[in-house]
Write a protein that binds this DNA or RNA. Sequence first.
DNA 1: ATCGTGACGAACG
DNA 2: CCGTTCGCCACGA
Length: 114
Amino acid sequence: MPPHRPTPNDTFYDLVYAFVRRVPPGRVVTYGQVALELGAPAAARAVGYALHYLSVSPPTDVPWWRVINAQGRISLKGRGAAADQQREMLEAEGVRFVDGRVDLGRYRWWPAEA
DNA sequence: ATCGTGACGAACG
DNA sequence: CCGTTCGCCACGA
């Protein structure tokens, strides 16, 4: 895990943040989808890595909670309360969870809609 | 230039 | 519907 990062503002990460900022409330996108939209189909993992830093530097205008995995589930690797918090944030926006999963066919957002 | 890292993901069994 | 395996990646060291 690359410790600290001052945010150069022109890296792949910044592109991730820019894209996620466009996701409207009550909608979601997947890590792989973001990577795809950014032209790096296989960089889903890097996307998650990028969002990881948001929790490190609190004040964020990036709606990171709207990014979930391809199964429509909240990714919970090395995060405690963050995961539960994410689900709460989404439900507060109206996103329904059925059996711990989100119906991507219904909540997934595509930039074309914007 | 090379390596380790992990909020991923598709493929298996 | 699990848990595992393996491939892929950007980034900092």
